[in-house]
């Protein structure tokens, strides 16, 4: 249990998570250990992670109820018992195909209780959020305003976007003539 709490503490550090952007098997297992819902199957391998792979945004809860055996009802992030090798969770996904939302342990910070959540898509972390927890254990706003890597979505053609203005690097009077802004000005959008 002690080592698990330690792992949870590590996971709760967004800095650590953002450093290791490519999720590795070790990180997956650490996350599983820290997550109240996910079950760490004996070996500590990448077997779970599927605990929250349901399409729903986040299946994690503070109950820890899915695990078998010992104490795990608190929301402290102390994770499920290490005893059972398998609970109702399906295992066996490899790290490359791990997808879902994973929560770290709750830590006390200057903002109050904070929990780090990551979103994993096909084995890669696509999002890291520091969630501030409300008194009743619910989530509130993200507390960090850090600019995190984000996948570039398909570039929009100007025609497909309903816009009235364009923000871009400063253009000269000459540059304006060939700019998108000039086009939408002429169109009277």
């Amino acid at each position: 249990m002690r080592s698990r709490a330690l792992a949870g503490g590590v996971v709760a550090s967004a800095a650590v998570l953002t450093l290791g952007w490519q999720i590795g098997a070790a990180q997956v297992s650490a996350l599983n250990a820290a997550s109240p819902v996910t079950n760490s199957a004996g070996s500590g391998s990448t077997s779970s992670g599927s605990a929250t792979t349901a399409p729903s945004p986040s299946a994690s809860s503070s109950s820890g109820s899915s695990s078998s055996g010992s104490s795990s009802e608190s929301s402290s992030g102390s994770s499920s018992s290490g005893s059972s090798g398998s609970s109702g969770l399906s295992g066996s996904s490899s790290s490359a195909s791990v997808s879902g939302t994973f929560d770290g342990a709750t830590t006390q910070t200057q903002f109050g209780p904070v929990q780090v959540e990551i979103v994993v898509s096909s084995g890669k972390i696509t999002d890291v959020k520091a969630l501030q927890l409300t008194n009743d254990g619910g989530r509130s706003v993200q507390i960090s305003n850090q600019a995190a890597p984000i996948l570039r979505s398909e570039a929009l053609t100007a025609q497909s976007a309903s816009i009235q203005s364009v923000s871009g690097a400063t253009y000269t009077s000459q540059g304006y003539m060939t700019s998108l802004q000039s086009a939408i000005d002429q169109a009277g959008l």
Partner: peptide
């Protein structure tokens, strides 16, 4: 609504 120019292609957003 304001488009943000794609720095790689100034006619795109």
């Amino acid at each position: 609504r304001v488009g943000v120019v794609d720095p790689d292609a100034r006619d795109r957003l």
